[in-house]
């Protein structure tokens, strides 16, 4: 029983980085841009996020405000990287897959280089402490699983319905969906397709930056070159897994994080199965589920990955 509660109470905070990054990627893809550089933006976000509290406290305790400033700046840097990606793939119409891999390498490499320059070796920081919600966190079991985390966790899950509302119930969401499905129609209605795509990239980048900072400031509380460890790519996969829908993406993030926490816990139990099997498990789950859920996707943005050019007919 205890181990199950343990697994579940880790599942929720461990899913946050994936959740934020894949919601960001969802906005990108809904507008028609495929951003494989999510991983790179996360790396930059992670670096910027930890740099602020580290420079102030030198690895020691700092006021919570510095952590929040770091997280905020990570979102800003992420948004700027999203816009930079927009210059490459929206304005100059570079092939999005390749440009995304470029952004990934650029982000991971730059973050690592800057880290060595400004910080040096691996350093941990105290990071953001948790804020159990009064009363709710006292509920047995449920309180520990859902209400005993830091503020970013609560905000990330609150953002799921907000993201749904933005997509379905605001004019901006309507524009984003139109640009991702049938940009020519959006254009004929006087919508500036490229502008919407830039905006979506900024939003998506900010969320990816936030996701990175969550890892370095809230979850792992340090930075290293391998910190992101492919989560950016998993986030992209989760968008497909979730059929571009916020709630399903959240479920995907939770499922992935669940199988991953199983791995941490089972390793400690000394069960006689090679631990590599459990390390592999979350990725296998993603691949298998993707294979079985990829049919009949009516929500899929039909114009995904195609640059828009008004005067060229396709």
């Amino acid at each position: 029983m205890n181990i199950i509660i343990n697994i579940l109470s880790m599942t929720v905070p461990f899913s946050v980085a994936l959740l934020l990054a894949s919601l960001g990627e969802m906005f990108n893809q809904r507008s028609g841009v495929f951003n494989l550089g999510c991983e790179g933006i996360m790396a930059m976000g992670a670096f910027v996020g930890m740099l602020i509290p580290f420079s102030i406290g030198g690895g020691g305790a700092v006021a919570a405000g510095w952590n929040y400033l770091g997280i905020l700046l990570a979102a800003v840097v992420g948004a700027l990287l999203g816009l930079f990606f927009g210059v490459v793939v929206v304005t100059f119409r570079a092939p999005q897959g390749i440009a995304g891999i470029g952004l990934q390498m650029f982000g991971v490499g730059t973050a690592g280089t800057l880290f060595r320059h400004f910080v040096g070796g691996t350093q941990s920081i105290p990071g953001l402490s948790s804020n159990p919600i009064p009363f709710l966190s006292d509920i047995p079991i449920v309180g520990r699983i859902f209400f005993s985390h830091n503020i970013i966790v609560y905000l990330a899950f609150l953002f799921v319905p907000v993201a749904w509302y933005i997509l379905q119930k605001t004019s901006w969401g309507l524009e984003v969906r139109a640009c991702g499905t049938y940009p020519r129609a959006a254009d004929s209605m006087g919508i500036n397709v490229n502008r919407i795509r830039y905006e979506a990239l900024a939003v998506g980048g900010a969320l990816a930056g936030l996701a990175g900072a969550y890892l370095s400031v809230c979850q792992i509380k340090m930075f290293s070159d391998e910190l992101i460890a492919g989560r950016g790519f998993i986030a992209v996969a989760l968008v497909y897994f979730g059929h571009w829908k916020p709630v399903r993406i959240m479920l995907g993030a939770l499922l992935f994080s669940f199988t991953q926490t199983i791995q941490y816990n089972v390793q400690g139990l000394g069960i006689n199965i090679p631990y590599e099997f459990f390390v592999m498990l979350p990725y296998v789950v993603v691949v298998v589920v993707l294979a079985f859920t990829s049919k009949n996707q009516t929500t899929s943005p039909a114009a995904l990955g195609k640059p828009f050019n008004r005067e060229i007919r396709t």
Binding site: T170, L174, A178, A185, S188, M189
Partner: peptide
């Protein structure tokens, strides 16, 4: 070639160009 977004409703397709209904934070 019709300029209609296939996975949206009729109302949503009209709303794309009907700026009067574009309230802040709400469509």
């Amino acid at each position: 070639q019709y300029m209609l977004v296939p996975n949206m409703t009729v109302t949503e397709n009209v709303a794309l160009g009907y700026k009067k209904a574009w309230k802040p934070f709400r469509l």
